[in-house]
Design a protein around this nucleic acid. Structure first.
Lengths: 155, 155
DNA sequence: TTGCTCCTCACGTCACGTGAGGTGGC
DNA sequence: TTGCTCCTCACGTCACGTGAGGTGGC
């Protein structure tokens, strides 16, 4: 059976490691290193010396990793644990989609909630600190501008 | 001549490296390393093996370094250049306080302004990215909460 | 004087950068 | 077939962590 003509499956263009690096603002070396430590899955089943291949989902996953690392300052070990926990919950959710006891499903959802709230707390901490830095810089700019004006008025 | 009794000079309590580390959320090793690469001035003139001594101004300087490093993700080399440029301008400003041509003083002030604006741009970039991450996390939390409610309603 | 913190090497680690020499795929 | 990008070691680097062995100051 072929797929319905009304919904043509997009060609799912495969990307090479250099393209993925550009799209995510990283380098091939970084991507290989993340694979090496198990932060990214092994890209395509390939023999020794064969090229890695990626799709859009891989790019999205890497973008998320880079963002959490840079914005929240997490180590790769923390990132790994975070992603593994998320993966585990997603897996359980798929299994129990329509079948299991609502009690178990509720527990999973509540775990997710706690997890999201923990990340939100980190984000809000950072935001507060950034806000303070921003305020101080604005003050300094104001003082310098005032001195510039008095300088021009006095000349 | 002794200082006036009406304005007693505070004892300017000297701090040891461990205290400074605690106050700034770093470690003694980090502080020694920053001194080693020239990011911090050598703490007190001391012979080989003698203890380093710090004051409140040193603590403030280190706090600023840590903050810029963590919030903006700058390397120590970038921090060093940033602080050196700032130091140079402050030095010139002190020298020319009342004496030099207003043209020169204006140039220094305008350099400061450009510098502050560059830092502000970095801060606002980060803030925008943090805002996006925050929004996405809030959306995910909302979806999980909705599913929790429907779960409870259906049971 | 006894503890504690400090000192200086110096090797280890995390997260990659940077070649060296070689093979894969449009 | 020619380039280009990719491949796998493997050593280098940045920003510290972690002892080892020893001395300083309240």
């Amino acid at each position: 059976v072929s797929p319905p003509a009304s919904a043509p499956i997009p060609p799912e263009r495969l990307l090479r490691i250099g393209e993925v690096a550009q799209l995510t603002g990283t380098t091939p070396r970084t991507i290989r290193y993340y694979e090496e430590i198990g932060l990214l899955p092994e890209a395509g089943d390939r023999g020794h010396g064969r090229h890695r291949a990626y799709d859009e989902a891989d790019v999205e996953r890497l973008r998320e990793i880079v963002r959490l690392k840079e914005l929240l300052g997490l180590t790769l070990e923390q990132l790994k644990q975070l992603l593994e926990a998320e993966e585990a919950r997603a897996g359980l959710r798929r299994e129990w989609q329509h079948a299991e006891a609502t009690e178990d499903r509720r527990r999973i959802l509540e775990e997710s909630l706690g997890h999201i709230d923990a990340q939100l707390a980190l984000v809000e901490d950072r935001r507060r600190e950034l806000e303070r830095l921003h305020g101080e810089l604005r003050d300094r700019r104001h003082r310098v501008r005032t001195r510039l004006r008095t300088l021009k008025a006095g000349s």
